[in-house]
Write a protein that binds this DNA or RNA. Sequence first.
DNA 1: GTAGACAAACATGTATGCAAGAGGATGGAG
DNA 2: CTCCATCCTCTTGCATACATGTTTGTCTAC
Lengths: 239, 239
Amino acid sequence: MSKADEAGEAGEVLNEPQVGIAGSRVDHVYNRVKEDIFDFRLLPGDRFTESQVADRLKVSRTPVREALYRLEREGYVFVHFRNGWSVRPFDFVMFENLYELRLVLETAAVRKVCDGPDLARIEELKQVWLVPDAEHVSDSLRAAELDEAFHTTIVDAADNPEIARVHNDVIERIRIIRRLDFTQGYRVERTYEEHAKILQALLRRRADAACSLLKAHIEESRAEVRKITIHRLQAARQS
Amino acid sequence: MSKADEAGEAGEVLNEPQVGIAGSRVDHVYNRVKEDIFDFRLLPGDRFTESQVADRLKVSRTPVREALYRLEREGYVFVHFRNGWSVRPFDFVMFENLYELRLVLETAAVRKVCDGPDLARIEELKQVWLVPDAEHVSDSLRAAELDEAFHTTIVDAADNPEIARVHNDVIERIRIIRRLDFTQGYRVERTYEEHAKILQALLRRRADAACSLLKAHIEESRAEVRKITIHRLQAARQS
DNA sequence: GTAGACAAACATGTATGCAAGAGGATGGAG
DNA sequence: CTCCATCCTCTTGCATACATGTTTGTCTAC
């Protein structure tokens, strides 16, 4: 997250704690490696060692190991017993399954929200999604954030932190391909339309309608993402 | 050769590897601490240090740290910055939420199985659950395992490893209170009846009926477990 | 040229040493 | 007695040293 501190002092011999305000070294390594995976600096299937990461990030192997085991638990890398690490290969079946899980969670949330008494947290979404086309966000990265926020807000409104946590993990894991969709900008306008329809169904407490729309929305997004991912991955392999 | 010779000749008892056949020390520590939590040798809210665990299990702090951070990610313990560790306090709201999440996942699995073409993996359940009362398992721990297997098998039959993994995590996290239910033996017979009914609905592909039965089954189990847990926890606190 | 033995390089797993910070104990001032 | 500053202990965070096992390249026998 903090790219500034890498350019700092270089040459202390012994321990250089100096951590100060920044987060722990483990967090730093975790974020950096994750970014490397998401930005395709580490390609699916690539092998690497703890020492390589430690040298590059100027820390010892100890925090590197903790960060890598965390990433392993989250499904981003594999550890090979006494034989290095590797980035988890792209597994489209896994992404299909994650999309299905996501749909299950969001559908459950929609039904719970429609049955529940409080639409207050849903009302806030109107300010973003029920507006004229002219006011749509043009920055595609910002649009991707808004898209995630839409789905996350619905799940949060269902008022179950455990479901929200799992949903967050799923969203995070498919972000590696979702971001490609939005950086291309293909589906930004469609997303606005579909979200608006879902929102209207939600506000009218039409659970069945909202679920059907949600399902179609996620299915289309998934199909689009898959196409783009294959294309992008080939490009990354060639360079 | 050089380093080994020097260390050996000096005769100090430095490292004592001796790991032999057993798994890694991290796994060992992980399992032991988790058992301590599940068996209430470590009570919710108890504080402890890495050194205490390391001394007791005769290992160094390094594998202890990795095991504890793993338990922390899984939600069993808290780490207090430079100030020790503690067992996560009992949070009944969290358990309610986990039961709800579990119901969402299992319901989705039931619907997918009913819609799908393959009931083969469900058929196997008949051998356990559609038998006369006389043949029911009397060992309560074994009964608890069978109960978990019933639910897990249904989710597995839905053929989505990501959903299965999350479901597994949820089952594991609520096992700490579920086991109390079965060791008391209160609900063993009821469980047989309810599972048999759910199974029959499943085999007839009556998704709605199966889901209602499943919901009632889980709700009853949850309510019973909650009562017993409070009671048991008070007993553990007094001793 | 090929197969097998063997050793060196290298990877992770584990133990240990050191530094910084959190929190309680202590002691003096009011 | 109470309050506050200070110190000291204890605990984690990180770096480093060492042990063990895997891979790989080479040398030799055939």
